[in-house]
Computed example of a mutant assay.
Amino acid sequence: MPNALISTAPDFSQPIAVLKHCHDKIRQQLATLQNLLDHVPQHGSDAQAQQAAHSIMRYFNQAAPHHHADEEHDLLPMLTATATGEDAAVLQKLTPEILAEHQQMDSLWHSLNLQLTHIADGEAAVPLLSAQDVQQFSTIYASHMEKEETWIAPMAKRIFNEQQMQQLGAAMQQRRGISA
């Protein structure tokens, strides 16, 4: 019997739910990143800061690139091939924005990753985490996720048939090296 008290991730038979779950995880990591801005100046690269930095780095170095690839290589192309009328027009406008945001986030991440590496390594005289970088990264991600949750995910749920959902889920699962 499943335990209703334990939150579980959706499986790949629900690919849009998996993408939303990823967004929830991103929000958690962004909150932790924000918390580090206050923590590090007061406590330095202590054990808590190191653990937080490792967690953020693990997520944005491993899971986030898969999430972006899910959208770039599968979700958006499948939507473009399926959408008609107003949906096609919305995609024509949003797809370049989404792809550009992925590039912006990747670029900002490289800078943040270097900063977090110093914290994760417990370096005593670390340069402080850049509040500007954290704010910019968080702002772009928040806007990006809102766009996808407002337009892209509902469109996919509405226009994809069961076979397309299975195809999307299978591609996402394979990208992560998880056997069916």
Rank of each mutant, 00 (worst) to 15 (best):
G85K: 08
L37M: 09
V90D: 03
T82G: 00
K93V: 11
D74T: 15
Q164V: 09
A81Y: 05
I56R: 02
I26R: 02
P15A: 09
S179P: 08
T84V: 12
Q92T: 14
I140E: 07
H23M: 00
A142N: 08
Q164M: 13
I140S: 08
S55P: 01
A170Q: 14
L116N: 04
K147G: 06
D74E: 12
R175G: 01
S130R: 01
D70I: 07
T117Y: 02
S138Y: 01
E148L: 03
T32C: 11
T84K: 15
S13E: 06
L76Q: 04
N161H: 13
T95L: 03
L129R: 01
L5C: 02
K25I: 13
Q42K: 15
H144A: 04
F12C: 06
S138F: 00
E162M: 05
E123Y: 08
G85H: 09
S179Y: 12
S138W: 03
P77H: 11
P15C: 09
Q103D: 04
M57D: 01
H23D: 00
T80W: 03
L168D: 01
S111T: 07
L37W: 04
K25R: 11
K147R: 15
Q42S: 15
S55G: 12
I16R: 01
P127S: 10
Y141I: 06
E146Y: 07
E148V: 03
Q14N: 12
M155L: 10
I119H: 02
A88V: 00
L91S: 06
T117M: 07
N35E: 13
Q132N: 14
T139M: 10
A153S: 03
Q115A: 09
E162D: 10
Q166L: 09
D106S: 14
G85P: 05
A100P: 05
I159N: 10
H67M: 02
A153Q: 02
